[in-house]
């Protein structure tokens, strides 16, 4: 494929290079590094005792529990959806395929607040289904189901988005080979497709999970801010911060920040893995 490019560009004079690198580093420090650092600093500034209490306090435990429930439901569902959508859009050709792929991306384009509002319009008491559901004794908005639904919406495309480009690139020759050797559809999927996409799945699931645990806007619209009842971790952070309980807010934030950092590391590792694979393929 491509010729090996000269990476370290000696074309630009040294002062240009150092100016640009300096600007990059400066900008990123102020924009990214300091905020990341301050989360952990503020979390433990008042000592480990405060940190531990902040995380084990009853309302914090409830918030963590609710976030886990929301992620626990939305991640498997969106994982299954991602697999199905990736298979349907990469293994077959049909009219309207690119439209379907764009629609899968829609939740990225829709602001979380608007997403929450949309669910209020469907499930709220003045919405389409709210009154009917209420008569059955089911409350969605301002209750746990609403939080779960909003979380499903905002994390909807993550697994599919990781899988579609990868499976498109891999094509379906290996699958056809397996079928021609007598394998069934499930055997082909489990033994041939799955091993080829497992790292992308892992990353997609991690990303989906990090977002599910951390979603704020959409969830805040559909949850009642009655603390301890429908507070997820981000909502709890919001409440604590507004009550000037900064240390407790940052303690909870540090959990989510750690999750975010793990996701970043996983992404970097995955990219390295893919790059290695490409290099290997090219070299032979």
């Amino acid at each position: 494929m491509a010729s090996h490019k000269l990476k370290a560009d000696s074309v630009d004079p040294w002062w240009v290079r150092w100016l640009l690198i300096g600007a990059t580093v400066g900008f990123m420090v102020f924009l990214l590094v300091l905020p990341l650092g301050v989360i952990f600093w503020e979390a433990i500034r008042k000592g480990w005792g405060v940190y531990v209490i902040a995380l084990t306090d009853r309302s914090a435990r409830n918030a963590i529990m609710l976030s886990l429930i929301a992620a626990g439901i939305s991640v498997p569902l969106n994982f299954l959806f991602g697999l199905a959508a990736a298979w349907a859009t990469t293994k077959y050709s049909f009219p309207g395929k690119s439209l379907l792929i764009s629609m899968i991306d829609l939740p990225f384009a829709i602001s979380p607040i608007i997403a929450g509002l949309m669910y209020v319009l469907v499930f709220g008491l003045q919405g389409w289904l709210g009154a009917t559901l209420a008569s059955w004794g089911i409350q969605v908005i301002f209750a746990v189901p609403g939080v779960v639904l909003a979380t499903i919406f905002v994390t909807f495309p993550f697994v599919a988005r990781e899988l579609i480009p990868l499976m498109q690139e891999q094509g379906s020759e290996e699958e056809w080979a397996a079928i021609s050797l007598g394998a069934s559809g499930w055997q082909t999927f489990l033994k041939v497709t799955l091993p080829n996409i497992k790292w992308a799945i892992l990353y997609g699931v991690l990303l989906c999970n990090a977002r599910a645990m951390g979603e704020f806007g959409a969830v805040s619209v559909v949850s009642s801010n009655i603390r301890g009842r429908t507070n997820t971790i981000p909502l709890q952070i919001d409440a604590l911060y507004n009550d000037y309980k900064t240390a407790a807010a940052f303690a909870l934030a540090s959990i989510l920040a750690t999750l975010g950092v793990i996701t970043l590391i996983a992404k970097t590792l995955l990219e390295q893995k893919l790059e290695q694979q490409n290099v290997q393929e090219e070299s032979t």
Binding site: P35, R211, G214, P234, L235, I237, Y241, A253
Partner: peptide, 11 residues
Amino acid sequence: AMPTAVSGIAL
């Protein structure tokens, strides 16, 4: 990767 609320309070 960072939840928006976390970024928000950090900023």
